[in-house]
Nucleic acid binder design. Structure first.
Lengths: 196, 196
DNA sequence: ATTATCTATAGATCTATAGATAATGC
DNA sequence: ATTATCTATAGATCTATAGATAATGC
């Protein structure tokens, strides 16, 4: 058994690695994955293009790590909420406000990464699986909260409604504070389901 | 004055040009703009890479034409509806069902093109202007239909809700018929605004 | 004669690797 | 001594142009 290599949280290599992630997230979201060269990322970080490959084995690995970090917190909350035996409408309200808060606050509008067409290709299938889990959790909660007489497809619209804050944030710079948008959107989702 | 050059609707050049557009739309939506090479498009059409440049001056021009053709029909309907002096809720219901129908029926899920990050770059600013017009029209109608006591930001969510059928179509292959989804979504939008 | 396509290629990328060197920390 | 970066470059693209040739239609 060998000991884990301990990297202090503020070591130089750690900071560089995280700056690469942060810069790449912003550039991928703004310009697209294929249109963002490793040179462009490196220049923005202030290192040479080849030095990226000390921190990541490939450009794909950079995007893969970004994607993983965006979906995991929501997935964990989903599991907690489903275990907590709340009324479906209340569980959904909490999930929606949490996700809207994250999407509006995260730097660089990283939520846009979900929609990158390249994410549909083979190297990112792990992320797609995790994302499908999140979609299913939303659909289960929304279906349970659905009022009689409301068309069942409405339950599949909730996640899309939540994520519509991503382009909204890009296109409408003057938005109310995240918490206010989150509560308004959660209330809108519940009205939409007839669960007001 | 010179006469316009008349190109018959089914001429060979016209068919090739339209097949380029159709194939490019599908590939851009599936794989992204930068990740789709002119060679890949040409191979799928069955011509040589260089022959694309007889029909289009650049790769950008192909995407620009696709974008223009997707936003224009909705913009025209918007203008008609605003002129027709309907109740805002009814005008919005018609606009929503129309757009959902188009987005669900158009071949190759071309709606995904809206979200391509490359669309945010300079060469596509004309499209972005037209798209901003559509967004404003949605916001005007939705604001007019908003019930008292409902948070105003809710009006800005309607377009996002409509466009959430684009990823829905990609991720949930088994969806009800377009008309049914359109009506369910329009009803959901009106409930969300408190205008049920 | 004109239109639509082809072959061939220039010139500019891009990712990733090899091997050298500078900075860090015991 | 190890870690993090650098320079240099191989090899594979990619867009767009030049000029030749085949198909079309009067």
């Amino acid at each position: 058994m060998c000991q884990d290599v301990v990297v202090p949280a503020d070591s130089r290599v750690r900071r560089t690695r995280e700056e690469i992630l942060s810069v790449a997230a912003r550039l991928f979201a703004e310009r697209g994955y294929a249109a963002t060269s490793t040179r462009l990322i490196a220049d923005a970080v202030g290192i040479r293009q080849a030095s990226l490959y000390y921190h990541f084995p490939s450009k794909e690995a950079v995007l893969a790590e970004l994607l993983a970090s965006t979906v995991r917190p929501s997935l964990e909350l989903c599991r907690d909420l489903e275990a907590a035996d709340l009324a479906p409408a209340e569980a959904l309200r909490r999930l929606v406000t949490f996700d809207v808060g994250v999407l509006l606050r995260v730097e660089g509008n990283v939520g846009l990464l979900y929609a990158l067409p390249e994410v549909g290709t083979d190297p990112f299938s792990t992320f797609r699986t995790e994302r499908a889990e999140l979609r299913d959790a939303y659909a289960r909660l929304a279906t349970a909260a659905l009022a009689p007489g409301v068309h069942p497809v409405t339950a599949d619209l909730v996640l899309g409604l939540v994520e519509s804050v991503i382009p909204l944030r890009r296109d409408s710079p003057k938005l109310p504070p995240p918490d206010e948008v989150g509560e308004a959107l959660a209330a809108a989702a519940l009205r939409m389901l007839g669960a007001g």
